[in-house]
Nucleic acid binder design. Sequence first.
DNA 1: TGTACATCAGTGAACGCGCGTTCACTGATGTAC
DNA 2: TGTACATCAGTGAACGCGCGTTCACTGATGTAC
Lengths: 210, 210
Amino acid sequence: MSNKVRSVDGRVIGSRAQATRRRLLDATEKLLKEQGVFDLRVVDITREVGTSAATFYQYFNDADAAILALAEEAVEAERPLVDHLHPAWTPSDVATRAQAFVDAYMAYWDAHAAVLRIRNVKAEEGDRNFRAVRSQANLLVIDGIQAMIADGVATGRLPRTLDPFTTGAALVAMIERLLGFQNEMTKRGSSRDSIRDTLVTLLSRTMVGN
Amino acid sequence: MSNKVRSVDGRVIGSRAQATRRRLLDATEKLLKEQGVFDLRVVDITREVGTSAATFYQYFNDADAAILALAEEAVEAERPLVDHLHPAWTPSDVATRAQAFVDAYMAYWDAHAAVLRIRNVKAEEGDRNFRAVRSQANLLVIDGIQAMIADGVATGRLPRTLDPFTTGAALVAMIERLLGFQNEMTKRGSSRDSIRDTLVTLLSRTMVGN
DNA sequence: TGTACATCAGTGAACGCGCGTTCACTGATGTAC
DNA sequence: TGTACATCAGTGAACGCGCGTTCACTGATGTAC
């Protein structure tokens, strides 16, 4: 399992080709942001890059393969978020640390929303690859949260009815999804700041117990 | 704005036609469950019903219109959930009432997951109709939760940093999204029951403060 | 109850567009000496 | 440094399938008398 970038026929590709592949990925992401998945066409991607459709097929089997590659990149981009969860938050620093975590998560989401959204639907509709890549991303964060909750339960600060793993998943679910609601919520009087503050409070209360 | 069912050219349709329309909607939902949105074809829908494609176009402008109709029906199906939120939960009855609410929500989600999932992506990708129908559905539940939280904040049971509306949205987000994770979670040791119990605990703590 | 007519509902068949995909080819870059 | 050759990267042009969509028509149901 080398992680060199390869073309569809399996050959390791040079720097020029890698640049082309990158431009195709960037164009794919751009179109996903601007028009959504349902109108995504291979032809449009290559037109955006100023190349021919045949070129696309040197690097990807189909449009889904390009989206999957973007979703894999998003896993890498999520990794730094985990730093906010170690060492475990304490009652005295939870306010600032939870806030830093939420800020980072919001920035991450803003940057990758289009791809993550599609990754999630495809995962839920049963695509194995998208499932794997989503699990991988979520587990990074869930693990960190889980550890803190397990500790809180052990020391009696948190109720025993909270299952650490499930709670971790629930909190990740909450953050992710709420950010998807953002646009509509701001129309109804939730500012971005109040979304931030509310998430911080909910995380603090649930994970540290105050 | 009569709410009689109409054909594409605007005429009110009779009972025979209504039955056909219904079968088309049912087939659409079935295919969404079985194959997902990305493989949904008008031809397949009509084949499923044993009718011709031309018939489909008497009732819907395109496949999206049928999905939207299903999403509108899902709003109606969500309405009974609100009953669980009135009157407000109290510290003494919160355990059973939160549980009943979560159970009802899980059942609702199980029944409509395929359609709701697509409604959400289309809403987030900017489709005005799907946005409207999602807001409508979410607000039903958010309103009920919001009222309880506002009350908790007013009586000092809950911290003032919780914005009632945003918190309501956050909780709805959490429930909805977590249920989308279910399949993967059960593979990692979260049983359906522990999902249920965790949600109940989180709701109780956040909405009633115990 | 039966008949004639009006309206409603459903469809076969055809059209054409647009997209995915491939292949044989050209042009660009790298390398050996 | 220059030349010849090998490999890498990119593409024009074509094919064909499959799907969305329409229209003129048939068949079914309803209604008036």
